[in-house]
Structure formats: structure tokens, C-alpha cells
């Protein structure tokens, strides 16, 4: 199982080496409802931690998706353009948003691990 870290805004980053795959969590997709559109960053874009990197839209809500850590976008999930429902069906798999080359891996320490995120979700209900 990949090493996955979470933000309080319900983004995740699945880390492998110096890169990571970013998306929104299962909790987030449930709260948003049917996802109808995802606006992704451009490949090559430099994003900073906690800055808006993507937008996810359901029928009645649009939410900013923040970068969990800083880095350069090295790939995006273009399939979401045609199949935004993948975010609902498989948020941690086919529903990924973009891949990030980390510029400051130490920022990962500020994120939650699986257990901490689960505990955090408990506090929201």
C-alpha cells in the first residue's frame, strides 16, 4: 500500500519517492455528490502548498482543491475531462487529479496519515 497523506481540506497525496499523486478523498466526493467537472492545472505548473491547484464541480457546488504540498505538476488525469464520475467511483484510483514532483518533501510532515485522518473525520460528524 502506497504511503498516503491527507489534508484537513480532504485532499490526499499518495507518495512514491520524490513524486506523489493528488486527488480528493472518499469523504470529499461523498460530501460533494455527483462530480460533473474537474478543472486541472497545466502540466509544468508550479504549485505552492495550500494554494488552489484545481477546481472540482458538482451540480450545485464548486470547490477549490488545494495543493497538499509544493511542487511541479508532472502529469494530469485527462480522462477526468470525459469521465468526471471516476472521482465518485474511485477517488483514490482512477479518480486521481494530478501528479506532483515535490519541491519540499519536508512539507509532508504537516499532513495526516491514514489513522489521523480517520480520527479527524470522526470529529466532523
Amino acid at each position: 500500500m502506497a504511503n498516503i497523506r491527507y489534508t484537513r481540506d480532504h485532499e490526499y497525496i499518495a507518495i512514491d519517492g520524490e513524486a506523489g499523486t493528488v486527488g480528493i478523498t472518499d469523504h470529499a466526493q461523498k460530501a460533494l455528490g455527483d462530480i460533473v467537472y474537474v478543472e486541472l492545472p497545466a502540466v509544468g505548473a508550479i504549485v505552492a502548498r495550500a494554494e488552489q491547484a484545481a477546481v472540482v464541480e458538482s451540480v450545485k457546488a464548486a470547490s477549490d482543491v488545494f495543493a497538499p504540498v509544493s511542487g511541479e505538476v508532472i502529469a494530469i488525469n485527462s480522462a477526468l475531462e470525459k469521465q468526471p464520475g471516476a472521482v465518485n467511483e474511485d477517488p483514490l484510483g482512477n479518480g486521481w487529479f494530478y501528479r506532483l514532483q515535490l519541491s519540499n518533501p519536508s512539507e509532508l510532515e504537516g499532513l495526516m496519515d491514514e489513522a489521523a485522518y480517520a480520527a479527524y473525520l470522526e470529529t466532523l460528524d
Binding site: 460533494l32 455528490g33 458538482s58 470547490s63
Partner: peptide, 10 residues
């Protein structure tokens, strides 16, 4: 995140 959305699919 706005989770005030309402059901939108039939």
C-alpha cells in the same frame, strides 16, 4: 468545501 448541496440526480 461546500457540502450544502442538494440531491441532483433522479
Amino acid at each position: 468545501m461546500n457540502n450544502q448541496g442538494r440531491p441532483t440526480a433522479t
